[in-house]
Simulated assay, not measured.
Amino acid sequence: MQAIFQHSITIQASDIDSLGHVNNVVYLRYVQEVAEAHWETCASDELKKAHLWVVLRHEIDYKAPAFLGQSLLGRTWVEKADGAKVWRYVHLLEVDSGKLVAQAKTLWCLLDAVTKRPKRITEEIDTVFDQSR
């Protein structure tokens, strides 16, 4: 496992569904928000201009409901890259209790920003994920 990156999430009123808790689809948005924050925070401007990321697969487990007024902490890390693909893990924790509310495993693919074709993940890009905040 590489370094863990953390990102704070504020639950908005629009995130709440008719059952009074965060909607399942919103958790997926949180997963993507945490992943994007990791790349935006740790990658150089040059790397960000030259590369794009797309999701190939999401697996998500809902562990407990989250509610308006709570704050969440997203924790993410990636496995060693395999060609153009990398598995990313995200845990969403309720800040006050530390309780795990959802966890996801997501397969991402690196693309060349110009050609939009898959591009092998280099050691330089892999080291971006060794950084944490």
Rank of each mutant, 00 (worst) to 15 (best):
F5V: 00
K99Q: 15
S18Y: 15
S132G: 11
T122N: 05
E59T: 11
G98F: 09
D126M: 11
A50D: 12
Y89Q: 03
A113L: 10
A35G: 13
Q32A: 12
R57I: 04
Q12M: 14
L68A: 12
L73D: 07
F129L: 07
D82P: 03
Q103H: 14
I11W: 01
L28I: 15
N23W: 03
D112V: 10
G98D: 08
R29V: 12
I125Q: 03
M1R: 10
L73W: 01
V114E: 15
W39P: 04
Q70A: 07
V22I: 10
Y89L: 06
L93G: 00
A84G: 00
N24F: 11
S8N: 14
Q6W: 06
R133V: 09
K119W: 02
A37W: 01
K99L: 13
L47N: 04
E59D: 12
R75E: 15
D130V: 02
A13K: 14
A84K: 09
T41Q: 13
K105P: 01
L72N: 02
T115E: 14
F129N: 02
K48E: 00
V90F: 03
K48Q: 12
Q70D: 04
T127N: 04
Y89G: 07
A84W: 06
D82M: 10
L68K: 10
Q6Y: 08
G74L: 05
I125D: 03
A81I: 06
L72Y: 01
E124G: 03
E123V: 08
P118T: 07
A81G: 06
V31I: 15
W53L: 15
S14M: 12
E40Y: 10
L52I: 04
A64L: 12
T122F: 06
V86R: 03
K99I: 09
H58R: 08
R117E: 12
G74D: 04
W77T: 00
M1W: 06
E94Q: 15
D15Y: 07
Q103A: 11
A113S: 15
I16C: 09
Q6A: 09
Y30S: 06
C42A: 11
G69V: 05
S8H: 12
H58V: 08
E33V: 04
S97V: 09
G74P: 01
L47E: 00
Y62P: 04
A50L: 14
N23T: 11
A35I: 11
F5Y: 12
T41E: 13
V95S: 11
I121A: 06
H91L: 11
T10Y: 05
H51I: 04
D15T: 09
R75F: 00
K105L: 09
V31T: 01
L100Y: 05
R117N: 12
V55P: 06
E33F: 07
S44D: 02
A37E: 05
E33H: 14
I11T: 03
I16T: 02
A102D: 05
L107D: 01
D45I: 08
R120E: 12
T76I: 00
Q2P: 00
